[in-house]
């Protein structure tokens, strides 16, 4: 008997995703249809293109998630959808689909904060992670350092004052003519390059906030003045600067707050250098490391379902007349 089955739906940016997860965080299905190829030619996510794709994909993706999980609508206990932050036109498609299914199936609906869902992606694979934790949430839209004191309670220690990390990767990649998205290309190129250029580490000793716009400009200026430098070396040196800034702040936060573990989440958490460094730091400092598998770093609906269930147990359902909030904050 499967109980506490949640159908999760995610459409906040450029992935259309649906997933069925049990109350014990067992993922029965997780379907993600990425639009990355649609947006690649524009060098970034185009909101109108994303919204159109979500409308076409939402129904097939949900249908597939149910089939792969081997469940019938009557088995579903909760319908959860990301209701912010994100692109408003994209969010509304997932929210509309979820509310409609909730109504016709007679099951409760809950709106889920996308950032909270990323924090909870750690618990999908390791449900017994001990709190308190420090979570570094890094993606194309966010760079946030969070202290998680207990379940569903956090404080934001710091965030980016300008570009998100993923955004800096995209801009540097675009300047180097490497294409989109920038994260995976730079990561791949960096493997064969050497870290021999001394790029700045912005704000490295100033509190927990981040700034990546200056680093991005420094890289672009360097390449302009030294056009002969191999792109591999630029990639490796840029990546090293980014990873050092991110991990040194996360490490300091873990020490100062007495955290038991250190987690990463979000699309940039798929970066191989960052993953490696988190393990090394945790080993040295006696912390429990947690690095989600790559499929749970990028946007997915399993994290939405798992977070939805947890929130539902604490707060109850959302109203059917609720909408989406593109600027939703983590609180």
């Amino acid at each position: 008997m499967k109980s506490g089955l949640t159908l999760g739906i995610e459409t906040s940016c450029d992935e259309t995703a649906a997933s069925v997860v049990t109350s014990e965080n067992v993922v029965l299905s997780s379907v993600v249809s990425s639009q990355v190829d649609l947006h690649a030619r524009y060098g970034g996510v185009v909101p109108e293109v994303a919204s159109r794709a979500h409308v076409s994909l939402i129904n097939p993706v949900i249908a597939q998630a149910l089939v792969e999980a081997g469940v019938e609508p009557k088995d579903i206990d909760l319908v959860a959808a990301t209701n912010g932050p994100g692109l408003v036109g994209s969010l509304l498609i997932g929210v509309s689909a979820a509310k409609a299914l909730s109504l016709v199936w007679g099951k409760p609906y809950i709106g889920v904060n996308h950032l909270e869902a990323h924090l909870y992606s750690c618990f999908l694979e390791e449900p017994d992670l001990e709190l308190p934790l420090i979570v570094l949430l890094v993606s194309g839209g966010h760079t946030i350092l969070v202290q998680m004191e207990e379940h569903l309670r956090y404080s934001i220690l710091g965030q980016t004052l300008d570009d998100a990390v993923g955004e800096a990767y995209d801009k540097v990649a675009r300047y180097l003519g490497l294409g989109y998205p920038g994260g995976p290309v730079i990561d791949h190129l960096a493997e064969t390059g050497s870290n021999n250029i001394e790029f700045p580490r912005p704000m490295i000793n100033q509190g927990y906030d981040f700034s990546f716009s200056g680093l991005k400009t420094a890289v672009i200026n360097y390449v302009r003045q030294n056009p002969e430098t191999p792109a591999e070396d630029v990639a490796a040196s840029f990546q090293e600067a980014v990873v050092e800034v991110l991990t040194s702040k996360a490490r300091k936060a873990a020490a100062e707050t007495g955290a038991k573990g250190l987690c990463i989440g979000g699309g940039v958490a798929a970066n191989s250098r960052l993953r490696e460094e988190i393990f090394d730091i945790c080993l040295e400092d006696g912390l429990h490391p947690f690095v989600p598998s790559r499929a749970y770093c990028t946007d997915n609906a399993a994290m939405v379902a798992a977070t939805g269930w947890r929130r539902f147990l604490q707060d109850g359902p959302s109203l059917l007349d609720s909408g989406a909030n593109p600027n939703l904050k983590l609180s």
């Binding site: 919204s51 979500h54 409308v55 408003v88 509304l92 109504l103 016709v104």
Partner: peptide, 19 residues
């Protein structure tokens, strides 16, 4: 109007699929 149109279509498609 695109956003409203898509809300209607996504809702309608989900009601039809759900039933």
């Amino acid at each position: 109007l695109y956003t409203g149109l898509r809300v209607g279509v996504a809702t309608a498609v989900s009601v039809a699929f759900g039933l």
